[in-house]
């Protein structure tokens, strides 16, 4: 579809293995809008909510918090890792999701990467959601992202309490 693309990113993610499943999902789309417009759609809370499928609140700086509330009551947090305006946004999901009743379930702490590339036809957006690397998985054993006193068994009456910073 995009003959010049897919050469590196797809291959670096693909394991040589026959038995091992791939550990990243990657999608690419050519959007009929300039990069600043696409960037706004990715980073402006109201605009993000219009297509992401969840209400969003994004602190757009490295180390910032991103919070997503789904219509079914699920809340997930992520850490903003990289912000390169109109080019690259990387988030890393917390290793759990909270449901409307205050329950918490484990989720893979995947990394979500949005890469924008301006082209004459519009903006090429590549989205990659990848499983934790060995280094990140190690950190997960001692999750620094979890606030003190909020272990996986913690449940408060207000499921959004942990999201409110």
């Amino acid at each position: 579809m995009y003959p010049n693309e897919g050469r590196y990113a797809t291959h670096e993610l693909r394991l040589r293995s026959r038995v091992m499943p791939e550990q990243a999902v990657e999608r690419e789309i050519l959007l009929p809008a300039p990069a600043d417009e696409v960037w706004a759609a990715l980073t402006d809370d109201d605009r993000l909510a219009a297509w992401f499928g969840a209400e969003a609140r994004l602190e757009l700086r490295p180390g910032g918090r991103a919070t997503f509330h789904w219509p079914d009551g699920t809340t997930r947090n992520a850490t903003v890792e990289v912000v390169e305006v109109e080019r690259l946004l990387i988030l890393r999901w917390f290793p759990f999701a909270d449901d409307a009743r205050g329950g918490r379930r484990r989720q893979p702490a995947t990394t979500l990467r949005f890469l924008l590339q301006a082209t004459p036809q519009g903006t090429r957006l590549r989205v990659t959601e990848s499983a934790p690397t060995a280094h990140e998985a190690l950190q997960e054993d001692h999750p620094p992202a979890l606030e003190a006193g909020q272990g996986p068994s913690h449940s408060s009456g207000d499921p959004r309490a942990s999201a409110a910073v």
Partner: peptide
Amino acid sequence: MGDVMGWMARVGAEWDDRLQALERHLA
């Protein structure tokens, strides 16, 4: 392994939907 592949397929389908919605949103 099957669970991982199922998970990948679900996440992939989510992104297909979201990117379509993003395209509509921008349009």
